[in-house]
Design a protein around this nucleic acid. Structure first.
Length: 770
RNA sequence: UGAGGCGUCGUCCAACGGCAGGACUGCGGACUUUGGAUCCGCGUAUGAAGGUUCGAAUCCUUCCGCCUCAGCCA
C-alpha cells in the first residue's frame, strides 16, 4: 500500500498542520533511536514502522540513530542485531545511520555554552545528597550549595571532569533551572555524569557521558529531525527537551517531540528487563526463540514483515493506553501466510488407516501446491496406497451428530484422493485405537463431490518421512502477565511442544530453510531458517489455522483466558482526599483578600452566576480582562458566557493576555453578538476571525458579510438548494428517519453560513419537508 | 500528594459543532475436495453530572477512573 493511502492518525494531523502553517519548510525528518542494549521487539516494530512510514508518507527521511550514551550497558553486538531487524522490517535509512557517540564533541560544546551562559553548573555533591535535595511531588527541592558557582569556575571544573581528574560520582554537570519547579525533571536535571568506562565506539576517549535528557534533543537538532516521536512515558521529559533546545539554539528546523502510546499486547510481556530475564534464566532458548515477541523471534517463527506491517496498520496510533488483543496479531499472520503458503500434507499425531479393499499397488498422485488456485501452477507427486496415516483427532468412536470426520460407518474424503468409509476399528492394549480399516469408493477419485462430506488429510504410512515439528503457543496464560504478582508464574508450560510422531509428505524433504507452508487443515509452518536443511527439514508452527470447530468447544488446547482485570493491584487510597479545583480557588481566595474582593464584586454583578464568578476570579489577569471587556460597554452576563464557553475553547492553552484579540474589542464583539445584528453561529465565525487577526468587530462583521439574514425568500431558496443536494437524505427522512432533520438543518445552516435564525430556518425546513 | 496525559462497541481505531462508523472477536447463514479461505447477515459503545448551542463524543465546568514522572537508565 502506498504510504499516502494508509489511514492517518493524530501524528499525520500534526504534520499536515505543520506543513499547512509553514512551520516546517524542509523535508519531514523522523528517527528511530534505539539504545543498543537489547533486542528489538514487536513494540519497537510499531515505532519503526511509524517513524519510517511517516517519513515515507511525506517524502521525507527517517534516520536510524543509536542512542549510545551509557557505555556500561551497551554493546556493539546489539547494534548489528538492531540494524538487521530494522532492515528486515523494510526500514531504509539511506545515508543516515547515526550514533549519539559521534556527537559527543558537539554536545560538549553545547554544555560549555550553557555553563558560560550561567545555565549550568558543576555540582560536587554525592548522589544521595542530590536525590534528597530534589524534593518530592508535594515538596519543592532545595538548592545545591554549588548552585551559584560562577561560570569561570564551572568551566574549569567541567574541563577537569572531562580530563579525568575526578572519579566516578565525584561531580556532575547540572542545568540551572528551578529547584521548585512542579515538574521534578526540571529541578536542575543532570546533564553529564562521570563514567570511567570503555565505550563500544569511542573507546576511552571520554570519561564523561551526557544524560538522555540533554543528549536526545541535541541529537535530533544536529540531524535536522523535525518530528521526534517517542512513547507516552516521555511526556514530562518534553518540557526539558524544549528547555535544552531553547538554550542551545537557534535550530532550524527546530525539532518537536510528540508522544504516542506504546504497544501492549495480550499474553506477552514487552519490557526489556523481563525479556532479558527469561532469556538469561533459560526459560526460552534465546532472544530469537520463536515464542519471543522479539523481531528476531518472530522472524524465526515464520512471521513476515508484511504481517507486522498489516498489524501496525490494523491497530493504529493514538495516545490511549491500551492492550491490543493478541487475536488481531494472529489474524494478520494468518492473512499474510494464507496468501504465500503452498498446501502440503502432514500428520502430526498419526494413526494407521488401511484401505482394506485396495488391491492395486501404490500410486503417485499428482497434486497441485495450490488446490484453490490452479493457475498459480506447481504440482508434486504424493504417494498413495493401501497403508496410510491420518490424524488421531480426525477419528471419533462416538462422534457428535455434526461430526464431519472419521467414525465407524461414516464416509470421509481423503484430501486429493478418494472417499473412504470406516468399516472396522482395531483396538490395541488398553482399548486405544491402533488402526482404522476402511473401504473406498473408486468412483470418487476425480471429484464428484458429495455434499456435507468432510475431508481429512493423510500421508503414506511408509513413504512419508518423519520430521521434527515444533508447536508454539502463547508464552503466557494470562492476558496481562504484568498484572500478575510474578509474571513467571503465568508462563504457559505448554508454549512449546513437539510432535514426535509427525510425518510429512516426501516432497517436503527438500523444503528450503525459510520457506512457508500450510500443512493442510493443521496450520502454517516455517522451515526453520537455522536448523532446517534440505534433506532434513525442521518445521516451526507459525500459527494454527482458524478453527471454528474447536473454538465452539471448550477452547481446545488454548490456555483459558482469565479476565483482563483479574489480578489488578489493589488501589491505594490517598491519605487525604484530593483537592478539587473549585476548592483550590476557594482556598486561594481565603488566603488573598484581593482575590476575595474580586470574587465578591464579580458575584454581585447582574447576570453572573456563582460558578462564573468563581471561574472569572481564578486569577487577577482573567478578572482584569473580563472587567476591561465589560468596560467597553457589554453586559456582564453575556461577556462571561462568551468568554467562559467560547473564547476559552478557541484560545486553547494560551492565556487571555497573549491573545491578539484585545479585551475591549472582545467587549464590543459581545455587544454586537447580542445586538441581534447577527446570529450565534455567525458570531462564532466572527470571534474566530477576530482571534486570527485583531480588528474592530463591527467592521469585521461587515467585511465578512455576517449580518443576520431575515429575508424569507433567501431562506426558502437556501432550503431549496439543500433539499436538492441532499435528495437521498430527504427521501430517508420522508421514509421515517426523522432524526435526519438535525443533519438537514445543519446543512441548511452551512448553506446560509449560519446567518439565518435557526428557529426560522427550522420552521422553513419542516415546512419544506412536509 | 504536585505536574503531565488518557477515557467511544468485548478489543483496537475513526468521526476535528451536524446521520456515532470501520476492523478484530463472537454468533448465524451461503459456498467449499482444508470445520481453512471466500461471500452475506447480526452492534443497546461516547466514564458521570451540569452548562453553552437550533444542534455536543467534540466547546466550558465539576466529579470519577486509569496511566506516567521524584535513576549519576533510556
Amino acid at each position: 500500500m502506498a504510504e499516502s493511502a494508509r489511514p492517518g492518525n493524530f501524528l499525520t494531523d500534526i504534520v499536515d498542520a505543520d506543513l499547512a502553517a509553514g512551520r516546517v519548510r524542509g523535508p519531514i525528518v523522523t528517527r528511530f533511536p534505539p539504545e543498543p542494549n537489547g533486542f528489538l521487539h514487536v513494540g519497537h516494530a510499531k515505532s519503526i514502522l511509524l517513524n519510517f512510514g511517516l517519513a515515507a508518507r511525506y517524502g521525507g527521511r527517517a534516520h536510524l540513530r543509536f542512542d549510545d550514551t551509557n557505555p556500561t550497558t551497551e554493546d556493539t553486538e546489539y547494534v548489528e542485531s538492531i540494524e538487521n531487524d530494522v532492515r528486515w522490517l523494510g526500514g531504509d535509512w539511506g545515508e543516515h545511520l547515526h550514533f549519539a557517540s559521534d556527537y559527543f564533541e558537539k554536545m560538549y560544546a553545547c554544555a560549555e555554552r550553557l555553563v558560560r551562559d550561567g545555565k549550568a553548573y558543576v555540582d560536587s555533591q554525592p548522589q544521595d545528597a542530590i536525590r534528597e535535595q530534589r524534593g518530592s511531588f508535594e515538596r519543592p527541592g532545595v538548592a545545591s550549595p554549588f548552585r551559584n558557582r560562577n561560570p569561570e569556575e564551572n568551566l574549569d571544573l567541567l574541563g577537569r571532569m572531562r580530563a579525568g581528574e575526578f572519579p566516578d560520582g565525584a561531580a556532575v554537570l547540572r542545568a540551572r533551572i528551578d529547584m521548585a519547579h512542579p515538574n521534578v525533571l526540571m529541578r536542575d536535571p543532570l546533564l553529564y555524569r562521570i563514567r570511567h568506562a570503555h565505550h563500544h565506539r569511542t573507546g576511552d576517549a571520554w570519561c564523561i557521558y551526557p544524560m538522555y535528557d540533554f543528549a536526545h534533543p541535541l541529537e535530533d537538532a544536529f540531524e535536522g529531525v523535525t518530528h521526534s516521536i517517542c512513547t507516552l512515558e516521555f511526556e514530562s521529559n518534553r518540557e526539558l527537551y524544549d528547555w535544552v533546545l531553547d538554550h542551545t539554539g537557534p535550530w532550524d528546523p527546530r525539532p518537536r517531540q510528540y508522544e504516542f502510546a506504546r504497544l501492549a499486547l495480550g499474553y506477552t510481556v514487552m519490557s526489556k528487563r523481563k525479556l532479558l530475564q527469561i532469556v538469561n534464566e533459560g526459560r526460552v532458548s534465546g532472544w530469537d526463540d520463536p515464542r519471543m515477541p522479539t523481531i528476531a523471534g518472530m522472524r524465526r517463527r515464520g512471521v513476515t514483515p508484511d504481517a507486522l506491517r498489516d498489524f501496525a496498520d490494523l491497530i493504529g496510533v493514538s495516545k490511549n493506553n491500551s492492550v491490543v488483543d493478541i487475536g488481531k496479531f494472529e489474524f494478520c499472520i494468518r492473512g499474510d501466510l494464507e496468501k504465500r503458503s503452498p498446501r502440503a500434507l502432514a500428520v502430526l499425531d498419526p494413526i494407521r488407516l488401511t484401505i482394506a479393499d485396495w488391491t492395486g499397488p501404490d500410486e503417485e498422485l499428482d497434486l497441485p501446491w495450490w488446490p484453490a488456485e490452479p493457475d498459480r501452477g506447481g504440482h508434486r507427486k504424493v504417494p498413495f496406497g493401501r497403508d496410510l496415516l491420518v490424524e488421531r483427532d480426525d477419528f471419533s468412536a462416538d462422534p457428535p451428530p455434526d461430526w464431519k470426520r472419521l467414525a465407524p460407518g461414516r464416509d470421509v474424503r481423503l484430501a486429493g484422493a478418494v472417499v473412504v468409509r470406516c468399516e472396522e476399528v482395531v483396538l490395541g492394549p488398553g482399548g486405544v485405537v491402533v488402526e482404522i480399516r476402511c473401504s473406498h469408493d473408486p468412483s470418487s477419485r476425480t471429484g464428484g463431490a458429495r455434499r456435507g462430506l468432510g475431508t481429512i488429510h493423510w500421508v503414506h504410512a511408509t513413504r512419508s518421512i518423519p520430521a521434527p515439528v515444533r508447536l508454539y503457543d502463547r508464552l503466557f496464560t494470562a492476558e496481562l502477565p504484568d498484572a500478575a504478582g510474578n509474571f513467571l508464574d503465568v508462563m504457559n508450560p505448554g508454549s512449546l511442544s513437539s510432535a514426535p510422531g509427525a510425518r510429512v509428505e516426501p516432497a517436503l524433504r527438500d523444503a528450503a530453510p525459510g520457506t512457508h507452508w500450510q500443512f493442510l487443515r493443521v496450520g502454517y509452518f516455517f522451515a526453520d531458517p537455522v536448523e532446517s536443511r534440505p534433506g532434513a527439514p525442521v518445521f516451526n508452527r507459525t500459527m494454527t489455522l482458524k478453527d471454528t470447530w474447536a473454538s465452539r468447544g471448550a477452547g481446545a488446547d488454548r490456555p483459558s483466558a482469565p479476565a483482563r482485570s483479574a489480578p489488578r493491584a489493589p488501589a491505594t487510597a490517598p491519605a487525604t482526599p484530593r483537592r478539587g479545583r473549585t476548592e483550590a480557588r476557594a482556598d486561594a481566595r481565603a488566603g488573598d483578600p484581593v482575590l476575595a474582593a474580586l470574587h465578591a464584586r464579580l458575584a454581585s454583578l447582574p447576570g453572573i452566576s456563582a460558578e462564573q464568578a468563581d471561574l472569572l476570579s481564578a486569577d487577577p489577569g482573567t478578572a482584569a480582562w473580563f472587567d476591561e471587556a465589560v468596560a467597553a460597554g457589554a453586559a456582564p452576563g453575556p461577556v462571561a458566557r462568551w468568554l467562559l464557553n467560547e473564547l476559552l475553547g478557541l484560545a486553547g492553552e494560551a492565556p487571555l493576555g497573549s491573545l491578539p484579540l484585545r479585551a475591549g474589542d472582545f467587549g464590543r464583539f459581545v455587544s454586537l453578538a447580542e445586538s441581534g445584528r447577527t446570529t450565534g453561529a455567525a458570531a462564532k465565525t466572527l470571534l474566530a476571525s477576530l482571534l486570527e487577526r485583531p480588528g474592530d468587530p463591527a467592521a469585521r462583521l461587515a467585511e465578512l458579510g455576517l449580518e443576520r439574514v431575515d429575508d424569507g425568500a433567501a431562506i426558502s431558496a437556501a432550503i431549496g438548494r439543500v433539499l436538492a443536494a441532499q435528495a437521498a437524505e430527504v427521501a430517508r427522512y420522508r421514509a421515517g428517519e426523522k432524526k435526519l432533520v438535525g443533519f438537514l438543518l445543519g446543512a441548511a445552516m452551512r448553506e446560509t453560513q449560519g446567518k439565518a435564525d435557526p428557529a426560522a430556518l427550522r420552521r422553513a425546513l419542516q415546512e419544506a419537508l412536509g
